[in-house]
Nucleic acid binder design. Structure first.
Ligand SMILES: [Mn+2]
Ligand SMILES: [Mn+2]
Ligand SMILES: [Zn+2]
Ligand SMILES: [Zn+2]
Lengths: 143, 143
DNA sequence: TTCTTAGATAAGAATGATTCCTATATAAGA
DNA sequence: TCTTATATAGGAATCATTCTTATCTAAGAA
Protein backbone atom coordinates (compact mmCIF):
# COMPACT_ATOMS: atom_id res chain seq x y z
CA UNK A 1 0.00 0.00 0.00
CA UNK A 2 1.19 3.54 -0.72
CA UNK A 3 0.55 6.33 1.76
CA UNK A 4 1.10 10.04 1.34
CA UNK A 5 3.60 11.79 3.50
CA UNK A 6 0.71 13.48 5.26
CA UNK A 7 -1.01 10.21 6.01
CA UNK A 8 2.15 8.80 7.50
CA UNK A 9 2.68 11.87 9.65
CA UNK A 10 -0.90 11.67 10.82
CA UNK A 11 -0.58 8.03 11.77
CA UNK A 12 2.45 8.81 13.90
CA UNK A 13 0.67 11.70 15.59
CA UNK A 14 -2.47 9.67 16.19
CA UNK A 15 -0.32 7.05 17.87
CA UNK A 16 1.08 9.73 20.17
CA UNK A 17 4.55 9.51 18.69
CA UNK A 18 6.90 12.35 17.87
CA UNK A 19 7.29 12.78 14.16
CA UNK A 20 10.92 12.30 13.18
CA UNK A 21 12.40 11.75 9.71
CA UNK A 22 13.49 8.29 10.80
CA UNK A 23 10.05 7.23 11.98
CA UNK A 24 8.51 8.68 8.86
CA UNK A 25 10.91 6.72 6.67
CA UNK A 26 10.45 3.50 8.61
CA UNK A 27 6.66 3.54 8.57
CA UNK A 28 6.71 4.45 4.88
CA UNK A 29 9.09 1.56 4.22
CA UNK A 30 6.92 -1.01 5.97
CA UNK A 31 3.91 0.18 3.98
CA UNK A 32 5.70 0.41 0.67
CA UNK A 33 7.58 -2.85 0.90
CA UNK A 34 4.48 -4.80 1.84
CA UNK A 35 4.55 -8.57 2.23
CA UNK A 36 5.89 -8.56 5.73
CA UNK A 37 9.39 -7.16 5.41
CA UNK A 38 12.18 -7.96 7.84
CA UNK A 39 14.04 -5.22 9.69
CA UNK A 40 16.90 -5.71 7.29
CA UNK A 41 14.69 -5.13 4.28
CA UNK A 42 13.41 -1.96 5.90
CA UNK A 43 16.95 -0.80 6.52
CA UNK A 44 18.08 -1.49 2.97
CA UNK A 45 15.06 0.28 1.56
CA UNK A 46 15.57 3.38 3.67
CA UNK A 47 19.34 3.64 3.20
CA UNK A 48 18.97 4.30 -0.51
CA UNK A 49 17.59 7.77 0.23
CA UNK A 50 18.64 8.14 3.82
CA UNK A 51 22.02 6.45 4.21
CA UNK A 52 22.66 7.75 7.71
CA UNK A 53 19.96 5.86 9.56
CA UNK A 54 21.31 3.66 12.36
CA UNK A 55 20.47 -0.01 12.51
CA UNK A 56 19.53 0.23 16.15
CA UNK A 57 17.16 3.06 15.42
CA UNK A 58 15.20 0.92 13.00
CA UNK A 59 14.85 -1.84 15.56
CA UNK A 60 13.90 0.64 18.27
CA UNK A 61 11.35 2.36 16.12
CA UNK A 62 9.80 -0.88 14.94
CA UNK A 63 9.40 -1.90 18.57
CA UNK A 64 7.83 1.42 19.42
CA UNK A 65 5.46 1.09 16.50
CA UNK A 66 4.45 -2.38 17.60
CA UNK A 67 3.74 -1.08 21.11
CA UNK A 68 1.76 1.81 19.65
CA UNK A 69 -0.28 -0.41 17.41
CA UNK A 70 1.04 1.03 14.15
CA UNK A 71 2.51 -2.26 12.94
CA UNK A 72 2.34 -5.87 13.96
CA UNK A 73 4.98 -8.52 14.33
CA UNK A 74 4.56 -11.58 12.14
CA UNK A 75 5.68 -14.82 13.74
CA UNK A 76 8.07 -16.97 11.74
CA UNK A 77 9.98 -20.24 11.86
CA UNK A 78 13.12 -18.34 11.05
CA UNK A 79 15.42 -16.18 13.08
CA UNK A 80 14.46 -12.83 11.62
CA UNK A 81 11.33 -11.03 12.75
CA UNK A 82 8.90 -9.79 10.11
CA UNK A 83 6.60 -6.76 10.27
CA UNK A 84 3.17 -5.94 8.94
CA UNK A 85 1.62 -2.52 8.42
CA UNK A 86 -1.80 -3.92 7.61
CA UNK A 87 -3.70 -3.64 10.85
CA UNK A 88 -7.01 -4.89 9.53
CA UNK A 89 -7.88 -8.38 10.66
CA UNK A 90 -6.32 -10.90 8.35
CA UNK A 91 -4.50 -14.21 8.31
CA UNK A 92 -1.23 -15.46 6.93
CA UNK A 93 -0.39 -18.03 4.31
CA UNK A 94 3.11 -19.42 4.85
CA UNK A 95 4.93 -21.10 2.00
CA UNK A 96 6.54 -24.31 3.28
CA UNK A 97 9.58 -23.98 1.06
CA UNK A 98 10.32 -20.29 0.98
CA UNK A 99 9.99 -17.22 3.18
CA UNK A 100 6.98 -16.02 1.30
CA UNK A 101 4.10 -14.95 3.53
CA UNK A 102 0.86 -13.90 1.88
CA UNK A 103 -2.09 -12.13 3.44
CA UNK A 104 -5.46 -13.78 3.57
CA UNK A 105 -8.53 -11.64 4.12
CA UNK A 106 -11.86 -13.32 4.68
CA UNK A 107 -14.67 -11.71 6.63
CA UNK A 108 -16.84 -14.77 6.46
CA UNK A 109 -14.10 -16.78 8.14
CA UNK A 110 -13.60 -14.10 10.77
CA UNK A 111 -17.28 -14.11 11.62
CA UNK A 112 -17.24 -17.87 11.78
CA UNK A 113 -14.35 -17.80 14.24
CA UNK A 114 -15.82 -15.00 16.30
CA UNK A 115 -19.14 -16.82 16.56
CA UNK A 116 -17.37 -20.02 17.45
CA UNK A 117 -15.34 -18.57 20.28
CA UNK A 118 -18.25 -16.51 21.55
CA UNK A 119 -20.06 -19.79 22.02
CA UNK A 120 -17.17 -21.94 23.22
CA UNK A 121 -15.63 -19.73 25.87
CA UNK A 122 -12.05 -20.40 26.82
CA UNK A 123 -12.02 -20.46 30.56
CA UNK A 124 -9.59 -18.14 32.28
CA UNK A 125 -8.50 -16.55 29.02
CA UNK A 126 -9.47 -13.30 27.35
CA UNK A 127 -8.93 -13.56 23.60
CA UNK A 128 -7.51 -10.46 22.00
CA UNK A 129 -6.68 -11.72 18.57
CA UNK A 130 -6.93 -14.85 16.48
CA UNK A 131 -4.70 -15.31 13.49
CA UNK A 132 -4.57 -18.37 11.28
CA UNK A 133 -1.24 -19.70 10.15
CA UNK A 134 -2.05 -21.43 6.89
CA UNK A 135 0.91 -23.50 5.86
CA UNK A 136 1.42 -25.25 2.56
CA UNK A 137 2.66 -24.79 -0.97
CA UNK A 138 1.88 -22.44 -3.78
CA UNK A 139 1.14 -24.28 -6.99
CA UNK A 140 2.80 -21.72 -9.15
CA UNK A 141 6.26 -21.05 -7.89
CA UNK A 142 6.23 -17.33 -8.50
CA UNK A 143 6.34 -14.49 -6.09
CA UNK B 1 3.68 -36.56 28.24
CA UNK B 2 5.94 -39.37 29.42
CA UNK B 3 7.22 -41.99 27.00
CA UNK B 4 9.08 -45.18 27.76
CA UNK B 5 12.59 -45.62 26.50
CA UNK B 6 11.28 -48.20 24.08
CA UNK B 7 8.66 -45.86 22.70
CA UNK B 8 11.25 -43.19 22.11
CA UNK B 9 13.57 -45.61 20.37
CA UNK B 10 10.72 -46.80 18.20
CA UNK B 11 9.79 -43.29 17.18
CA UNK B 12 13.36 -42.62 16.08
CA UNK B 13 13.47 -45.85 14.11
CA UNK B 14 10.09 -45.24 12.52
CA UNK B 15 11.34 -41.87 11.40
CA UNK B 16 14.32 -43.58 9.77
CA UNK B 17 16.83 -42.07 12.15
CA UNK B 18 19.79 -43.78 13.78
CA UNK B 19 19.24 -44.24 17.46
CA UNK B 20 21.91 -42.41 19.41
CA UNK B 21 21.97 -41.56 23.12
CA UNK B 22 21.83 -37.89 22.19
CA UNK B 23 18.75 -38.25 20.03
CA UNK B 24 17.11 -40.40 22.65
CA UNK B 25 17.76 -37.82 25.33
CA UNK B 26 16.60 -34.94 23.17
CA UNK B 27 13.32 -36.49 22.12
CA UNK B 28 12.69 -37.57 25.69
CA UNK B 29 13.39 -34.03 26.85
CA UNK B 30 10.95 -32.43 24.43
CA UNK B 31 8.26 -34.87 25.52
CA UNK B 32 8.96 -34.59 29.22
CA UNK B 33 9.35 -30.84 29.37
CA UNK B 34 6.12 -30.22 27.46
CA UNK B 35 4.75 -26.73 26.95
CA UNK B 36 6.92 -25.96 23.97
CA UNK B 37 10.44 -25.84 25.36
CA UNK B 38 13.23 -23.83 23.81
CA UNK B 39 16.48 -25.46 22.72
CA UNK B 40 18.09 -24.01 25.82
CA UNK B 41 15.53 -25.67 28.08
CA UNK B 42 16.17 -28.95 26.33
CA UNK B 43 19.91 -28.54 26.82
CA UNK B 44 19.58 -27.70 30.51
CA UNK B 45 17.28 -30.64 31.08
CA UNK B 46 19.60 -33.10 29.38
CA UNK B 47 22.84 -31.86 30.93
CA UNK B 48 21.73 -32.89 34.40
CA UNK B 49 22.17 -36.54 33.49
CA UNK B 50 24.24 -36.20 30.37
CA UNK B 51 26.60 -33.28 30.89
CA UNK B 52 28.68 -33.92 27.80
CA UNK B 53 26.11 -33.17 25.14
CA UNK B 54 27.17 -30.42 22.76
CA UNK B 55 24.99 -27.41 22.17
CA UNK B 56 25.32 -27.72 18.43
CA UNK B 57 24.18 -31.33 18.59
CA UNK B 58 20.93 -30.33 20.21
CA UNK B 59 20.24 -27.77 17.51
CA UNK B 60 21.20 -30.23 14.78
CA UNK B 61 19.07 -32.99 16.19
CA UNK B 62 16.07 -30.74 16.71
CA UNK B 63 16.35 -29.71 13.06
CA UNK B 64 16.57 -33.31 11.97
CA UNK B 65 13.54 -34.17 14.05
CA UNK B 66 11.56 -31.34 12.52
CA UNK B 67 12.48 -32.57 9.03
CA UNK B 68 11.53 -36.11 10.02
CA UNK B 69 8.19 -35.06 11.44
CA UNK B 70 9.01 -36.06 15.02
CA UNK B 71 8.58 -32.57 16.44
CA UNK B 72 7.27 -29.26 15.21
CA UNK B 73 8.58 -25.76 15.47
CA UNK B 74 6.35 -23.30 17.29
CA UNK B 75 6.45 -19.78 15.91
CA UNK B 76 7.12 -17.00 18.36
CA UNK B 77 7.48 -13.24 18.60
CA UNK B 78 10.73 -13.73 20.40
CA UNK B 79 14.23 -14.63 19.33
CA UNK B 80 14.31 -18.21 20.59
CA UNK B 81 12.64 -21.02 18.70
CA UNK B 82 10.28 -23.33 20.57
CA UNK B 83 9.55 -26.99 19.91
CA UNK B 84 6.53 -29.22 20.25
CA UNK B 85 6.44 -33.01 20.48
CA UNK B 86 2.66 -33.16 20.20
CA UNK B 87 2.04 -33.95 16.58
CA UNK B 88 -1.75 -34.24 16.84
CA UNK B 89 -3.59 -31.34 15.32
CA UNK B 90 -3.92 -28.57 17.85
CA UNK B 91 -3.70 -24.82 18.22
CA UNK B 92 -1.74 -22.43 20.39
CA UNK B 93 -2.78 -19.93 22.99
CA UNK B 94 -0.16 -17.22 23.39
CA UNK B 95 -0.06 -15.12 26.54
CA UNK B 96 0.41 -11.48 25.58
CA UNK B 97 2.53 -10.69 28.59
CA UNK B 98 4.66 -13.77 29.10
CA UNK B 99 6.26 -16.55 27.10
CA UNK B 100 3.58 -19.00 28.10
CA UNK B 101 2.14 -20.99 25.20
CA UNK B 102 -0.71 -23.37 25.91
CA UNK B 103 -2.11 -26.08 23.68
CA UNK B 104 -5.68 -25.90 22.50
CA UNK B 105 -7.33 -29.06 21.23
CA UNK B 106 -10.77 -28.83 19.65
CA UNK B 107 -11.99 -31.32 17.09
CA UNK B 108 -15.19 -29.42 16.47
CA UNK B 109 -13.14 -26.38 15.51
CA UNK B 110 -10.88 -28.45 13.30
CA UNK B 111 -13.84 -29.87 11.43
CA UNK B 112 -15.30 -26.42 11.08
CA UNK B 113 -12.05 -25.16 9.55
CA UNK B 114 -11.63 -28.17 7.31
CA UNK B 115 -15.17 -27.85 6.02
CA UNK B 116 -14.68 -24.16 5.48
CA UNK B 117 -11.52 -24.49 3.45
CA UNK B 118 -12.86 -27.46 1.51
CA UNK B 119 -15.64 -25.17 0.37
CA UNK B 120 -13.65 -21.99 -0.10
CA UNK B 121 -10.68 -23.23 -2.07
CA UNK B 122 -7.55 -21.13 -1.99
CA UNK B 123 -6.49 -20.84 -5.57
CA UNK B 124 -2.94 -21.85 -6.39
CA UNK B 125 -2.28 -23.07 -2.87
CA UNK B 126 -2.29 -26.52 -1.34
CA UNK B 127 -2.98 -26.30 2.39
CA UNK B 128 -0.94 -28.65 4.52
CA UNK B 129 -1.70 -27.36 7.95
CA UNK B 130 -3.77 -24.74 9.68
CA UNK B 131 -2.86 -23.57 13.15
CA UNK B 132 -4.60 -20.87 15.12
CA UNK B 133 -2.56 -18.39 17.05
CA UNK B 134 -4.88 -17.35 19.84
CA UNK B 135 -3.43 -14.31 21.55
CA UNK B 136 -4.63 -12.72 24.75
CA UNK B 137 -4.36 -12.86 28.51
CA UNK B 138 -4.89 -15.49 31.12
CA UNK B 139 -7.19 -14.33 33.89
CA UNK B 140 -5.33 -16.13 36.56
CA UNK B 141 -1.68 -15.21 36.39
CA UNK B 142 -0.32 -18.63 37.18
CA UNK B 143 1.64 -21.07 35.09
C1' DT C 1 10.66 33.32 17.50
C1' DT C 2 13.68 31.43 20.78
C1' DC C 3 14.30 28.47 24.70
C1' DT C 4 14.01 24.15 27.03
C1' DT C 5 14.25 19.49 27.71
C1' DA C 6 12.24 14.90 27.43
C1' DG C 7 12.82 11.90 24.29
C1' DA C 8 15.17 10.24 19.89
C1' DT C 9 19.16 8.98 17.18
C1' DA C 10 24.08 7.61 15.77
C1' DA C 11 27.77 4.77 16.28
C1' DG C 12 29.60 0.94 17.54
C1' DA C 13 30.26 -2.54 21.19
C1' DA C 14 27.96 -6.41 23.31
C1' DT C 15 24.79 -10.22 23.55
C1' DG C 16 22.72 -14.46 22.66
C1' DA C 17 20.63 -17.78 19.72
C1' DT C 18 22.01 -20.45 16.20
C1' DT C 19 25.17 -22.21 12.68
C1' DC C 20 29.57 -23.83 11.01
C1' DC C 21 33.87 -26.34 10.94
C1' DT C 22 36.54 -30.33 11.46
C1' DA C 23 38.60 -34.01 13.99
C1' DT C 24 36.89 -37.91 16.33
C1' DA C 25 33.50 -41.35 17.52
C1' DT C 26 29.91 -44.66 16.68
C1' DA C 27 25.44 -47.02 14.95
C1' DA C 28 24.22 -50.57 12.43
C1' DG C 29 24.41 -53.21 8.27
C1' DA C 30 27.70 -56.48 5.84
C1' DT D 1 34.23 -58.26 13.67
C1' DC D 2 34.70 -54.81 9.93
C1' DT D 3 33.36 -51.00 7.46
C1' DT D 4 31.79 -46.64 6.57
C1' DA D 5 28.15 -43.35 6.29
C1' DT D 6 26.62 -40.60 9.63
C1' DA D 7 26.64 -38.31 14.11
C1' DT D 8 28.84 -35.78 17.82
C1' DA D 9 32.13 -32.71 20.52
C1' DG D 10 34.28 -28.68 20.96
C1' DG D 11 34.82 -24.36 19.90
C1' DA D 12 34.91 -20.59 16.55
C1' DA D 13 31.96 -17.86 13.68
C1' DT D 14 27.72 -15.64 12.27
C1' DC D 15 24.08 -12.64 12.45
C1' DA D 16 19.83 -10.68 14.23
C1' DT D 17 18.99 -7.92 17.87
C1' DT D 18 19.98 -5.19 22.02
C1' DC D 19 22.72 -1.97 24.78
C1' DT D 20 25.40 2.02 25.93
C1' DT D 21 26.45 6.67 25.83
C1' DA D 22 27.27 10.97 23.70
C1' DT D 23 24.83 13.97 20.80
C1' DC D 24 20.84 15.82 18.68
C1' DT D 25 16.11 17.49 17.96
C1' DA D 26 10.83 17.75 18.02
C1' DA D 27 7.63 20.29 19.80
C1' DG D 28 5.53 22.61 23.71
C1' DA D 29 6.45 26.79 26.65
C1' DA D 30 7.67 31.41 27.12
MN1 LIG E 1 19.61 -13.66 18.20
MN1 LIG F 1 18.46 -14.69 16.53
ZN1 LIG G 1 -0.14 -9.61 6.87
ZN1 LIG H 1 1.56 -27.37 21.09
Amino acid sequence: MKLSSEQIKQKLKDAGLRVTPQRHAILEAVYTLGNHPSAEQVIDFIRVRYPGIATGTVYNVLDVMVESGLVKRVKTDKDAMRYDAIMNRHHHIYCAESDRIEDYFDEELDELLQAYFRKKKLQDFKIEDIILQIKGNFNDNSE
